[in-house]
Computed example of a mutant assay.
Amino acid sequence: MTTPDEFANVRYLVDDVAAAVHFYTTHLGFTLRSNPAPAFADVVRGPLRLLLSGPASSGARATPDESAVPGRNRIHLIVGDLDAEIDRLRASGLTVPGDVVAGPGGRQILLTDPAGNLVELFEPAAH
């Protein structure tokens, strides 16, 4: 089991590892940790290690049908100023679809990486 001082790992299946690495390192502040083969890379941001598994990687094996229920799982990145982040991403050429959703806990918007995996940018409400 992962200990509290280790990374929390999330695996995303991607169509193009290089495009995914570029997206996360250029736009979302991740750092490339390793890219041992064109089929796989991992990037980190704080305690989060994102495993980017391309079609030729062992991690990209088909999920059993009973486990393949489409969920809306996503990584959740906290930002200090959501509007400024959206402006920065749009200025860099990214499409930021949808509208900001606000609730009692804060405001959020969803992005997709080049493979369609969800990323939530979340600005906590001031308390």
Rank of each mutant, 00 (worst) to 15 (best):
T3D: 12
P4N: 03
P4Q: 00
P4C: 13
D5E: 15
E6S: 13
F7D: 08
N9R: 08
N9A: 00
V10Q: 04
R11A: 07
Y12E: 00
Y12P: 01
Y12I: 12
D15C: 00
D15A: 13
D15Q: 03
D15I: 00
D16I: 03
V17F: 02
A19D: 05
V21Q: 01
F23Q: 08
Y24D: 12
T25I: 05
T26Q: 14
T26V: 03
L28A: 04
G29D: 13
F30C: 11
F30Y: 11
L32H: 10
R33I: 04
R33E: 15
S34G: 07
S34A: 15
S34T: 13
P36K: 04
P36I: 14
A37Y: 05
A37S: 15
A37L: 07
P38W: 03
F40S: 10
F40L: 13
V43C: 09
V44Y: 03
G46F: 07
G46Y: 03
G46M: 06
P47N: 15
L48Y: 14
R49P: 02
L50W: 07
L52C: 05
L52Y: 00
L52V: 02
S53F: 10
P55A: 00
S57L: 05
S58V: 12
A60L: 04
R61Q: 06
A62K: 14
P64D: 12
P64F: 15
D65K: 10
E66I: 09
E66Q: 11
E66P: 01
S67Q: 14
A68E: 12
P70I: 13
G71K: 06
R72V: 11
N73I: 06
N73Q: 12
R74I: 03
R74L: 14
R74C: 14
I75S: 01
I75L: 04
H76R: 02
H76S: 12
L77V: 07
I78R: 15
D81L: 02
D81H: 04
D81C: 04
D83G: 08
A84T: 12
D87I: 02
D87M: 06
R88V: 08
R88Q: 08
R90H: 00
R90T: 14
R90Q: 11
A91W: 04
S92Y: 01
G93P: 09
T95A: 11
V96I: 07
P97M: 05
P97R: 14
G98F: 07
D99C: 04
D99S: 13
V100E: 10
V100P: 13
A102G: 02
G103P: 00
P104W: 07
G105D: 10
G106L: 00
R107I: 01
Q108H: 01
Q108K: 11
Q108N: 06
T112A: 13
D113L: 05
P114K: 01
P114C: 09
G116M: 02
G116V: 08
L118H: 10
L118I: 09
L118Y: 11
V119A: 10
V119L: 04
V119E: 05
E120M: 01
L121E: 04
F122I: 11
P124T: 14
A125D: 05
H127V: 10
